[in-house]
């Protein structure tokens, strides 16, 4: 999945789940201040991201997220991790 595809998928989740106007969403949009999400919304978003990445996002990682771009980077990272086979010991 390309970065653009990831971004579009995230915008789709934000629009569908939180009834946001796609024109209001930009990479630099802050989830709390600009898009008016709260922590319960964030949980719903992480559930949706689980469907995208197939991986459970840890709360410690989630706490670092502030912007839409942060989510894109997180999904990129999760997808990259998912594609790396476990180390053989």
């Amino acid at each position: 999945m390309t970065r653009a595809e990831i971004y579009n998928r995230i915008v789709g989740i934000l629009v569908k789940s939180f009834e946001l106007d796609p024109n209001d969403i930009r990479p630099e949009s802050r989830l709390f201040e600009d898009l008016d999400l709260d922590s319960i919304d964030a949980i719903d978003m992480f559930v949706e991201l689980h469907d995208v990445t197939g991986r459970r996002i840890d709360v410690q990682v989630a706490r670092k997220i502030r912007t839409v771009e942060d989510i894109v980077k997180l999904v990129e990272s999760e997808l990259a991790s998912a594609s790396v086979p476990p180390t053989q010991e």
């Binding site: 802050r30 989830l31 709390f32 201040e33 999400l37 709260d38 922590s39 319960i40 919304d41 964030a42 949980i43 709360v59 410690q60 989630a62 706490r63 670092k64 997220i65 502030r66």
Partner: peptide
């Protein structure tokens, strides 16, 4: 890990005196 204290910019919920849930 749950609470990052008073902040105007974190994703938080909860009520006064109750548990806070700060994910950012």
């Amino acid at each position: 890990d749950l609470s990052s204290g008073p902040s105007g910019s974190d994703l938080s919920s909860g009520t006064a005196g109750g548990p806070r849930l700060d994910l950012v």
